[in-house]
Design a protein around this nucleic acid. Structure first.
Length: 595
RNA sequence: GGUCCCAUAGCUCAGCUGGAUAGAGCAUCUGCCUUCUAAGCAGACGGUCAGGGGUUCGAGUCCCUUUGGGAUCACCA
């Protein structure tokens, strides 16, 4: 909560105690921003106080308002509408806030690590059998932005990435390559490694579907057909070989995964992300067995007749869950238990965030509960940042059917759209080719990140390609444009603005709106971090840019004749540019100097 | 069937812990570049906040219920 608000709350309590001899010790009071249609900065709703005052809403509000004005509280005027007491805070409050903070390039941002706590954020954790797609982009944008938010709130951040690099799905790509690959390589095919491997994953799915259809036509049920399909058996055999350490299988696995990692690294580079720590399922998948033994000993798990090991969570409203197969191999959740233990061993983590889609809500509920039952002390600091699926106007995305929006393709489209748009507007004049390309990247990626991050993470979102390349209105480029526009004004001013308190006492309505918006920035950053929701910052940045553009149109800056007013407006412009830049940075979006 | 999530303007989304006449953008229509970047600004049009009950001085927001959509409940990951 902003400082002024808690002061007004305390004063309101004092007013109630003084006027009505009320016991305010346990009273919870809320202060709201005054609705723009009324005069005032903050509003106190007096309905909850009527029992204390024993008077009508209007009279109660008026009495408290008069008390505020009479008692040197920083409130200069008030008005009453029904039960709403609108308070006008003295201009000097806003001006001194402004003077104290306008040149601060890090306003609202805590120093990295100042909180003395470490948070680990795991994203994007892809499978290594296909390239990244639009869903991964939402994951990556959320993960990297939340990381920035945590940093801005004083946490030390560790970015981790878990590669699901083994198992049935990986074997599918491998098998298809083995059967139909003819020794093709990313170099020979001139294609990114992850895309090449992904083609074989699709190839497998296609061939498998044919086999199943054929069997089904022969009279088998779909379920039986899937089990009896020769490819199913071949994949299982390959998995057994892999687990046994069969040299040829392991070699192929190493080679193909290597291709995928090379491809991912290129994509990561375009995205500007770099994990600090990688975990590989292939390294940890066996480690979970020790924990299973521990759980069995503690009586948390139990063994069934066939040798499989389970946990019964029915008392917690969940189901029974297998943690070790009858053949002694681990399942997904056992591996996640192992990874959690490894993370704890590797880092002293105070908080651990998993950025994973909401289709795994149940999985994480179970995982966290198991860790808690096992008595892991870190179990309470785990958080599943669950986000909704990205949908397309054409329907759902399915990797196996190739109906996904590929991450690399999409980024390329965004960047070339930015190029086209920029050239149309004639804005590349005076830029070197390198600068121009950098700008296209900044704008294209900014548009994409903003488009995805402005939506509440927990909600599923519709990705309309046509809307995403629109750079007008509520978009990243609109905010970037506002920043570039301000920088242009500041360049023309030639020297840094100097605003001295008291030099300029009058504030225009659009200036005041802007200052109030700037004042709200730190609270917004805090709220976004606490709720793991970058959308708060995204929407804030939009309103801030809007406020500035209104100010820009209504008032002159450089041409202002009154020197104090000119400096004030330049300083306000500087302050706004700084905060826009910070906001965009929290979203992983760059703020261009010109565009 | 059980559990969880979602439903706000033609479309995409805001709406913070319940508060005043529910806000933006896109789309459609109107104005504004010989003045600091028009990727901008101003205005018009557009809503029974899915339906129904309840709690409250007050409900888009909380509770119940119906409907519609999605996810999940694997010895897949």
């Amino acid at each position: 909560m902003a400082a002024i608000e808690s002061i007004l709350i305390d004063k309101t309590k004092l007013a109630l105690a003084t006027l009505y001899s009320a016991d305010v010790a346990n009273l919870v009071i809320k202060i709201e921003h005054t609705n723009p249609q009324f005069e005032g900065d903050y509003t106190v709703n007096v309905f909850p106080f009527l029992k204390l005052s024993g008077k009508k809403p209007e009279d109660t509000a008026a009495e408290i308002g008069e008390w505020f004005v009479a008692n040197n509280t920083g409130v200069t005027a008030f008005n009453v509408v029904k039960g709403f007491l609108n308070l006008v805070v003295e201009n000097s409050f806003w001006l001194s806030f402004f003077s104290a903070n306008y040149p601060d390039a890090h306003f609202g941002i805590a120093q990295n690590g100042s909180k003395g706590q470490t948070v680990m954020i795991e994203y994007p954790s892809p499978n290594t059998n296909k390239p990244l797609h639009l869903g991964h982009l939402r994951n990556i944008f959320l993960g990297s932005s939340v990381a920035e938010l945590m940093k801005a709130n004083g946490y030390h951040v560790v970015h981790s990435c878990l590669y699901n690099d083994r198992g049935t799905n990986i074997c599918k790509s491998m098998l298809a390559y083995q059967k139909w690959g003819k020794g093709e390589t990313p170099e020979s095919a001139n294609i990114k490694g992850d895309h090449l491997v992904g083609q074989y994953y699709v190839k497998f799915a296609t061939e498998y579907k044919l086999q199943v259809e054929e069997l089904a036509a022969g009279g088998l049920s779909k379920e039986d057909a899937e089990k009896k399909a020769p490819l199913t058996q071949e994949v299982n055999d390959m998995l057994v070989k892999w687990e046994a350490g069969d040299e040829a299988t392991r070699n192929l696995w190493q080679i193909m995964n290597g291709w995928v990692y090379q491809g991912f690294d290129i994509t990561y580079q375009t995205l500007g992300i770099k994990p600090d720590k990688y975990y590989y399922e292939s390294d940890v998948y066996n480690l979970g067995k020790e924990t299973v033994a521990e759980g069995l000993e503690k009586g948390i798990f139990f063994k069934k007749d066939d040798g499989s090991i389970w946990i019964d969570l029915t008392a917690d409203g969940l189901d029974q869950k297998v943690v070790l197969r009858s053949n002694g191999t681990t399942v997904y959740i056992t591996q996640d238990i192992a990874v959690a233990n490894e993370k704890e061993k590797d880092y002293k983590i105070d908080k651990s965030v998993y950025v994973v889609g909401n289709e795994q809500d149940y999985h994480f509920k179970v995982l966290f509960l198991i860790l808690k039952k096992l008595g892991r002390k870190y179990a309470d600091s785990l958080y599943h940042l669950s986000y909704g699926m990205v949908e397309l106007p054409t329907g759902k995305m399915k990797s196996r059917e190739g109906t996904v929006v590929d991450a690399d393709d999409l980024m390329e489209i965004m960047i070339s759209s930015a190029k086209q748009k920029t050239e149309e507007l004639g804005k590349i004049e005076g830029l070197s080719e390198e600068e121009a390309n950098k700008l296209f990247h900044t704008l294209g990626m900014g548009a994409l990140r903003y488009f995805i991050l402005k939506v509440d993470p927990k909600k599923k979102m519709m990705f309309n390609p046509e809307e995403s390349i629109d750079f007008n209105g509520h978009t990243g480029p609109f905010i970037q444009y506002t920043h570039a526009r301000i920088r242009s004004v500041l360049r023309k001013a030639e020297k840094a603005p100097v605003h001295t308190e008291g030099g300029h006492a009058e504030i225009h309505a659009v200036e005041k709106a802007l200052i109030k918006r700037l004042y709200a920035f730190p609270a917004t950053v805090q709220l976004a971090a606490e709720s793991y929701d970058p959308a708060h910052v995204a929407n804030y940045a939009y309103f801030l840019a809007s406020d500035y553009n209104r100010f820009y149109h209504e008032l002159t800056i450089l041409k202002e004749e009154n020197a104090a007013a000119r400096e004030f407006r330049l300083a306000l412009s500087l302050f706004t540019a700084n905060v826009i830049k910070q906001s965009l940075q929290l979203l992983g979006v760059e703020a261009p100097e010109r565009m």
